[in-house]
Amino acid sequence: MSGSVRIGVEEEFHLVDPATGVLSPGSTGVLAGLPTGARFKPELMASAVETNSGVCGTLDGLRADVIASRRAVVEAADAIGLGVIGTGAAPLWSPEGIPVVHTERYEEMREDYRKLAEEQFICGLQVHIDCPDRDLGVRVMVRLQPWLPILLALSASSPYWQGRDTGYASYRTIAWRRWPTAGPVPCVRSAAEYDALVDALVASGVAHDDKMIYFDARPALAAPTLEIRICDSVPLVDDVVLLAGLARALVCRAVARETAEPGGVLPVPVELLEAARWRAARSGLTGVLLDPRTFRPVLAAEAVGLLLAEVRDDAERTGDAAELAELCAASLADGGSAARQRRAVARSEHSTRSVRAAVDLLRAETRATGRAGLGAGTGAMA
């Protein structure tokens, strides 16, 4: 299956005032400078925009697509004096200054969910992987669950919240979990079971509609794909490529196993899935994670190695194995985005500007086309 499986990504970005690093409600102005259509969209908060890639068959194609869409957003933001940062949670914000986008749906969400909606200053990366058989897709997403926290750890980019270090690598995960329909995937065995659960949640009034089903993975609403939703937004294009490549290989591996042994996987207790998810949010790549087979603590590098071993055969079939291993090694070497931000803050000369250093780093990384351009002053988006 892996050779023909296509992928795409949705990226969410925060908009900031370059002079202060604080969130800015400028999405209307940014979107006005972008082409209309499905590629660029508003989010709940007026301080965020979403990009949607095309459907890509290769990681090289995805990289080029992501660079092009990021460049367009950065240029549109530059034109109205704003900065763009790819991170799971905005480091600096004031809730009084950021309204929800004025649509009927978003206004209803603000009224019903109050503080949850009013503090939705978080952004995620979603990866879509071809999976036209919904029954198979539902069973596959259950198989994937123990591995998803390692993807979260690789993406963790949100250590700061309202100007303070939270102690977490992905505080977005903690803020996101407050929503009543967020978290691990329920153990369902068919598309009919999944759809019945979604219908029940909507009928309960806890979720307004099926768009508010925020599980870590789900069958996509408008495409024949499986959607992996656990990741933070990330500043580096390299990490978008890495996470998409790993997600595709994981899905292909799970499809092969489910096809060989339909329904053969035993459900993992939700408490262990929650524990692995929390551990990844807390540690990122600089502490321990939970082994997806035993749920015992292992060093992050060991957990990432287990993931690479799990997907190696499928990654080799697509020609991605060497690139994924190289990108994982680079992330482990620098500790991931949360660690890079903390180092930038530690180097900051003035305590009053400390968290600004994290925002400045995120802006530079979000503009860059790859790691190599960051140190050398080349490779950045014009």
Rank of each mutant, 00 (worst) to 15 (best):
A79H: 07
E365L: 01
R253P: 09
L236S: 10
D195E: 05
T51G: 00
G3N: 14
P219S: 04
C252S: 08
I150L: 10
V74M: 06
M212E: 07
V16L: 02
R312A: 13
R229P: 03
S53R: 13
D133F: 05
A192M: 10
W161Y: 11
E365R: 12
R70C: 01
V5D: 12
A207V: 02
Y171Q: 11
V16A: 02
Y171F: 05
A79T: 04
E111I: 02
P35W: 13
V255M: 13
V188L: 12
R63P: 10
G335V: 09
L273H: 03
E10L: 00
T378D: 13
D232F: 00
R248Y: 05
S4N: 11
G88F: 01
G97K: 10
D320V: 05
D130E: 15
L144W: 11
Q145Y: 05
S331P: 02
V234I: 08
Q120I: 11
A156N: 09
F40S: 00
L201A: 09
D360Q: 15
A322Q: 14
T259H: 07
L34T: 04
W161C: 06
R164T: 15
Y168E: 03
R143D: 01
G88C: 04
A156F: 04
L154G: 07
A249D: 14
R114E: 14
D320W: 13
T378N: 15
R248K: 08
L152R: 04
G37C: 00
Y106I: 00
R114L: 09
L23K: 08
V140W: 15
H14T: 15
L44C: 08
Y194A: 03
G335F: 13
G137N: 00
V255T: 11
G21V: 13
A260T: 14
R114C: 07
A275S: 12
A222M: 10
D133L: 09
L226G: 04
E323Q: 10
A156M: 04
P235S: 13
A333K: 14
G370Y: 12
S190H: 03
A281I: 03
P91S: 07
T58H: 14
I230R: 10
S348P: 01
A19K: 15
L59N: 06
L152M: 13
Y214P: 15
V30K: 05
A182E: 08
G245F: 09
R343D: 14
L59M: 03
M45H: 12
A48G: 09
